[in-house]
Design a protein around this nucleic acid. Structure first.
Length: 585
RNA sequence: GCCGAGGUAGCUCAGCUGGUAGAGCAAUCGCUUCGUAAGCGAUAGGUCGUGGGUUCGAUUCCCAUCCUCGGCUCCA
């Protein structure tokens, strides 16, 4: 292989060539199939088809077998160039209307084809020398996909595949997928009895069970106490508001698709809130504000309702009713820089407290058709950039990618298996402040428009919780875990001692349960382990006689002859440190 | 919303082309008193997601609808 191309390019080339082989196999197996596009993607490739045949998962092994034949035949990839008109006619004659459309859209005068084993595709290339070089691939699934990603265009059938340079890499990827499946918060949520959804209630509406709710309370308690320390005040605001409010805010103009139909109250329309901002603004406007009281930092765990298309709902990650850890900051232009730095610092502090240390950011700047003065955009954007640099957070800039109402930074974290999740967001809002005509009186005695910053640190509690479950695979840090200690008695002879031990733990503020059933210790351990309780205290005749406990940790290791007071001290230390490291491990 | 696959006991699932359902685990009740991931037995539990239709008869076929899953589009 040529040595002047990078590894990444070679990998992409290989994947793209594999996509061609897929298309060759499909067109041979299902004559009449029309081709869409077939690019290389992360971890593999796909090809879009239009076919009379409805592809099913059973087809995949058949197609894959055909692909292997093609690989074995070592067809060379042969490039040729053609005039645009000629190319259009060529593909038109073959009925390849999608290719014809692509040709029309391409700026080049010359079109290139790649031919392998009689299969010809419009393609810029490059490709590997011959099909024999393609080895470690696997077809994974079939999905519908809009032609050119446009929901108004026809839906094609997409076949996805994986492709890697080596078998080890393919296996490693499959293993990673398996690991991800094991961590799926929907699965763990059921196993650990944390939350549920119900047909009778509706899609995307979460029910937190006792253990999940306890964890949410712990998260909220921490969140609140940190906010007090960080100089925030709290608000509580209603869940519904009159149409007039949403007219003023503009949501009925630009956000209506995401809002639920109004309910009629005394002949007036009320809408469930999709956002908290208009309510916070009402509080701001209850009296004339002076520069002396700014900045105002108002936080609320605000539950909002947004219509999400049925097909996009996904466990806790994408729901229809959720609670944002919202806050709005109102400040003067002089304060903005410091406020942004503070907010970013605070956000990082909170994320790290939950064990997310791999953090990066996206900075999105002014788009076309933005509202608000360019000078304000410039200042706001500069303050965001400055804060990111001050905190040394790696970030990429999405030029023109901001919302029409203001620039923003989105923070994304990497979880334990290196998947990225977007959590916090810090965004300016020039729209609301204009529409509601916010003002404060400056030291000059004149009215000025404050900067309004909207921020969420965790995003939504539901989504954050789902990510937390997957990050820790259910083995939460001790301060968050719903049951910290399970006391297991060996026989009923130790039940009184078990009660005593459990009571001591509970009195010390440790969440402990006692399993004093007449069951074998093996069963009790198994059940406790499956519920992902980090510490078990095993009490048999020996422990009872000596007044000690045996600690069993998840690895299966036992630490015998411990005094309960020493265990309590160690666990309280672990809780206090908020670490994910276990005191006994 | 669109394409595709599903919804059967609390959970995980089986049930070929129509003759009203089964397993394992869990639950309950006994027996067992036991040292590190499932002790033994018995019992109970389902209008087969929901509503229509076809049929002598529907979990099975048709239609509608709700919900779930994998994608597309969109997003906290």
């Amino acid at each position: 292989m040529a040595s002047d191309i990078s590894k990444d390019e070679a990998l992409e080339r290989m994947r793209h060539s594999t996509a061609h082989v897929l298309a060759q196999a499909v067109t041979e197996l299902f004559p009449g199939t029309k081709l869409g596009i077939g690019p290389a993607i992360e971890n593999g490739f796909y090809y879009d088809f239009e076919s009379e045949h409805k592809f099913t998962p059973e087809d995949l092994p058949v197609i894959e077998a055909k692909m292997k034949e093609i690989v074995k035949a070592r067809h060379p990839f042969v490039r040729s160039e053609h005039d645009k008109g000629e190319a259009a006619k060529f593909f038109l004659d073959r009925g390849e209307k999608y290719k014809v459309e692509l040709i029309g859209a391409l700026p080049d005068e010359k079109m290139s084809y790649y031919e392998n084993g009689g299969f010809i595709d419009l393609c810029r290339g490059p490709h590997v020398a011959d099909t024999g070089r393609l080895k470690h691939f696997r077809l994974t699934r079939i999905a519908g996909a809009y032609w050119r990603g446009d929901e108004k265009r026809p839906m094609l059938q997409r076949v996805y595949g994986l492709a890697f340079n080596t078998k080890d890499e393919l296996d490693a990827y499959l293993k990673q997928q398996e690991e991800a499946a094991k961590r799926d918060h929907r699965k763990i949520g059921k196993e650990m009895d944390l939350f549920s959804f119900h047909d009778d209630v509706g899609a995307g509406l979460v029910h937190w069970h006792p253990k999940g709710a306890l964890m949410r309370v712990l998260i909220e308690d921490f969140w609140r106490s940190e906010h007090l320390k960080a100089g925030y005040d709290f608000l509580f605001t209603p869940h519904i508001g009159r149409a007039q409010l949403w007219e003023t805010s503009g949501h009925l103009g630009f956000y209506k698709e995401n809002m639920y139909s109004p309910m009629d109250i005394d002949g007036m329309d009320y809408y469930a809130k999709p956002m908290n901002c208009p309510f916070h603004i009402q509080v701001y406007k209850t009296h004339k504000r002076s520069y002396r009281e700014l900045p105002l930092r108002w936080a609320e765990l605000g539950t909002v309702y947004r219509y999400e298309k049925a097909g996009v709902l996904h466990g806790l990650m994408r729901v229809r009713g959720f609670t944002q850890d919202d806050a709005h900051i109102f400040c003067t232009p002089e304060q903005i820089e410091e406020e942004i730095v503070r907010t970013l610092k605070f956000n990082l502090h909170i994320l790290r407290a939950f064990g997310f240390n791999d953090i990066a950011a996206y900075l999105a700047t002014m788009p076309e058709g933005a509202v608000g003065e360019p000078a304000r955009w410039a200042q706001a954007t500069a303050s965001l950039k400055k804060a990111l640099e001050a905190e040394n957070i790696p970030y990429s800039v999405d030029e023109g990618g901001g919302a029409f109402y203001g620039p923003k930074i989105d923070l994304k974290i990497k979880d334990a298996i290196a998947r990225e999740w977007q959590l916090g967001t810090i965004q300016f809002d020039f729209n609301m402040s204009e529409r509601f005509e916010l003002s404060y009186v400056g030291s000059d005695g004149h009215e000025h428009r404050p900067y309004m910053v909207h921020r969420a640190l965790l995003g939504s509690l539901e989504r954050f919780y789902g990510i937390l479950v997957e990050h820790y695979a259910g083995w939460f840090p001790l301060w968050l875990t719903p049951v910290q200690v399970k006391v297991l008695t060996l026989t009923e002879g130790q039940n009184a001692y078990g009660q005593e031990i459990r009571q001591k733990l509970v009195d010390a503020g440790i969440r402990a349960e006692l399993d004093d059933r007449n069951e074998k210790i093996g069963l009790k351990i198994r059940e406790t382990q499956l519920k992902k309780v980090p510490y078990m205290l095993i009490l048999g005749a020996n422990e009872a006689a000596n007044g000690t406990v045996t600690v069993r940790v998840k690895s299966g290791k036992n630490i015998p002859d411990l005094k309960i007071e020493a265990v309590i001290a160690a666990l309280l230390g672990e809780v206090k440190s908020r670490t994910a490291e276990n005191a006994y491990s």
